[in-house]
């Protein structure tokens, strides 16, 4: 890496840090709203957890998966979702930014458009999300009979990163339609709820049509179920599950890069908000 690009990267990082600090201070101006935002994050994650807890205590496992294994999938997904909310949630607010004319202002600035969208505000609810997710994942990881060796921990980290990027890719694709004057906020909220409701289960419990859906058009299975299958070990792996599970992080990365490309192409077609 040349010295100029290292300097440019450091400068960019400094700008990100300063903008994030400013956003956090801006959110702290409304103290009650700040605390409610954290509570919002906690409640969102806790509602998913509560649903799972009710299911695993009332019903004896799902399709051969034990309660602790199902909770592991849930914990994994919540952790990935919390990190997605922290870094990428602002993408879903692109329609609001367009309506308020902020995107027009972003286009006049010397920072990449996506960077400015992601830095537009600090998502305080991510703090609540992360607390619950980290707690749940810690509990779930301790109840499953696994040896946390270095390779397994590395696989976990890479899989979580892939899951974050895949979730971001899905929302990037949806929000790219906003540049063509479509209202996408409802759809992105619904997809978010869908992933929260159905992404916590082994995909095998669904009929073939839905399994195909969750492995293709709406790749929920790659976010938690497949990586978790690989991490949990032999008993739930078929050769196909292993291949897809190990490939999930790479699929997440490729999906994100592809979605980013489409997002910027759509942004080039943006004709402004008028007025």
């Amino acid at each position: 890496m040349s010295e100029i690009s290292v300097r440019a990267f450091r400068r960019r990082l400094q700008i990100v840090r300063r903008i994030t600090g400013l956003n956090l201070r801006a959110r702290l101006e409304y103290r009650t709203e700040f605390l409610l935002a954290i509570l919002n994050g906690v409640l969102w994650q806790a509602s998913v957890l509560l649903f799972m807890t009710v299911l695993v205590t009332r019903f004896s496992g799902l399709a051969g998966w034990s309660s602790s294994e199902v909770l592991f999938i849930t914990g994994f997904r919540l952790l990935a979702h919390a990190l997605y909310v922290c870094f990428f949630l602002n993408v879903t607010y692109v329609p609001v930014m367009i309506r308020e004319g902020r995107v027009d202002a972003f286009l006049a600035r010397p920072l990449p458009l996506l960077t400015q969208v992601l830095l537009n505000s600090f998502n305080v609810n991510a703090l609540g999300d992360l607390c619950v997710a980290a707690t749940l994942f810690g509990v779930a990881a301790s109840t499953v009979p696994l040896d946390w060796t270095a390779p397994r921990v590395c696989l976990l980290v890479i899989s979580v990163a892939g899951a974050v990027l895949l979730e971001a890719a899905i929302q990037l694709l949806i929000s790219s339609a906003a540049f063509r004057q479509s209202e996408t906020f409802t759809l992105s909220t619904w997809i978010d709820e869908l992933m929260a409701t159905f992404g916590n289960y082994p995909t095998v419990i669904f009929p073939l049509v839905l399994r195909a859906l969750f492995l293709s058009v709406l790749p929920i299975a790659f976010i938690a179920y497949l990586p978790a299958s690989v991490i949990l070990g032999e008993q739930h792996r078929s050769s196909m599950t292993s291949i897809l599970g190990y490939a999930a992080p790479a699929i997440g990365l490729c999906a994100f890069l592809g979605a980013r490309l489409i997002w910027y192409r759509s942004a080039r077609a943006y004709q402004g908000n008028g007025g």
Partner: peptide, 23 residues
């Protein structure tokens, strides 16, 4: 409060949970 977006969200989740919409 002027800003009540998060109060609305907290209410939505709470009402969904306590009304039986989730489960």
């Amino acid at each position: 409060t002027t800003a009540n977006t998060n109060a609305l969200r907290v209410y939505s989740f709470s009402s969904d949970l306590l009304s039986g919409a989730f489960v």
